[in-house]
Simulated assay, not measured.
Amino acid sequence: MPDVELATDTSGGASLQRRGAELTVVVPTLNERANIDLLVARLHKSLLGINWEVVFVDDDSKDGTIAAVRDIASHDYQVRGIRRIARRGLAGACLEGVLSSSAPIVAVMDGDLQHDETCLAAMFETMRGGGADLVVASRYGDDGDANSGLSRLRSGGSRLATHLARLLLKVPLSDPMSGFFMVRRDIVDAVAPRLSRQGFKILLDIVASSPTPLRIREIPYVFGPRLHGQSKLDSLIVLEYLGLLVAKASGDLISTRFLAFGLVGSAGVVVHLSVLHVLLPHGLPFTVAQTAAMFTAMAFNYTLNNTFTYRDQRRHGWRFVTGFAMFAALCSFGVVAGVGVSTLLYTSPSRWWAAGLAAAAVGSAWNYITNSAITWRVR
């Protein structure tokens, strides 16, 4: 329990004052109700003698996770909960939790009990002693082990992702995919504007975004099996991770979201041409076939962007329909802008490709900026 001091009030009596937390443990959650009580109990046991708090950042779970957090918080002041509405993503949840803390040191760990909470005390002592800016619990150190908590496929994928991160970004970590680490809060404060809110791997983002090299220490741990609930890892997370690698390798000139938007747009071109190729042989006028192909491609692009690119701001129900109307209208303006620019740049038949590329660039930039600001704006 955090230390409690006695202070004398103006009437000569005594009042209780709690010291501020030295350590904040941030736990992002999505449908982890069954694990909340167990994790809090384990933290109380593992962090004796440390002024700590735990912040559960919940992405509006449907199983009552935030209600379980509030039940505990009503009688345990070391427990707090943040409920996020219409926002999704582990990285974004971690960032909100860290930025909500006033403690000088923050830890991030999962809520599924696969991370060994007994490591926290040793990590904290290393941080408090000034020996590191960042301490990472590694599954791949000399005494670490990920085999008990991961399937063979996920273990192989994790090692491949680790190799790519070390190859492309030169990060000095044996386990850059780890979701279990401790860091000085001021470091996160400094790089927060550059961090992606998408994806799962905020540790890699923090290290790659830091303008100066961080003093990093690693401690090995055994990655345990999940006791309750289901894993949130899916195929889209893999694509988001690859997007993060590209974004950081480019020095953030290409954002993860813009890269995804561009990939969807490229796929939409293929859909457009395919529909046009199918319709024209059936005797339809070119204008009719072209219009049908354009709207099919727009519907394809919108649906894929809503599912993947803006998954943390996904539109549902009637908002999905109104979102498509806005998307189509904004993209139509993008076509007009692209045609206008390409017409100005077109000077001769031999330079058609330059004008075409300019039109594509202007149209893509317009579509991305306007749809991010309007169709999928943060609510």
Rank of each mutant, 00 (worst) to 15 (best):
V106W: 00
H277Y: 13
G363D: 11
S148I: 12
T65P: 00
S158V: 08
P193W: 15
L330S: 05
V207N: 00
V275R: 02
A121I: 05
R84D: 02
R314M: 05
Y140C: 04
S210L: 11
R80W: 03
N147H: 10
V339E: 10
V341N: 09
I50F: 13
A260Y: 03
S250D: 10
G251F: 14
L204R: 02
R152V: 04
L236A: 11
N306L: 13
L168E: 04
L276T: 13
E32A: 13
V4T: 08
L330M: 13
V321S: 05
V108A: 01
V275C: 04
A86V: 07
V288H: 10
R319F: 12
E96N: 08
G229A: 12
S178H: 02
V108G: 00
H277A: 15
S372T: 05
M1F: 06
V98E: 02
R185W: 02
L160W: 09
F333Q: 01
V264E: 06
G340W: 15
F295Y: 11
E117N: 09
W376H: 11
A355T: 13
G334T: 09
R159A: 12
L120F: 09
R18E: 11
L30C: 02
S350F: 04
V335W: 14
L273G: 14
T322D: 08
P349R: 08
F286K: 03
G229D: 14
T162A: 04
T24M: 11
D234E: 10
I82C: 00
L39Q: 09
A68G: 00
F258P: 00
A359L: 11
Y140P: 00
L16G: 07
S372W: 06
I50L: 12
L233R: 12
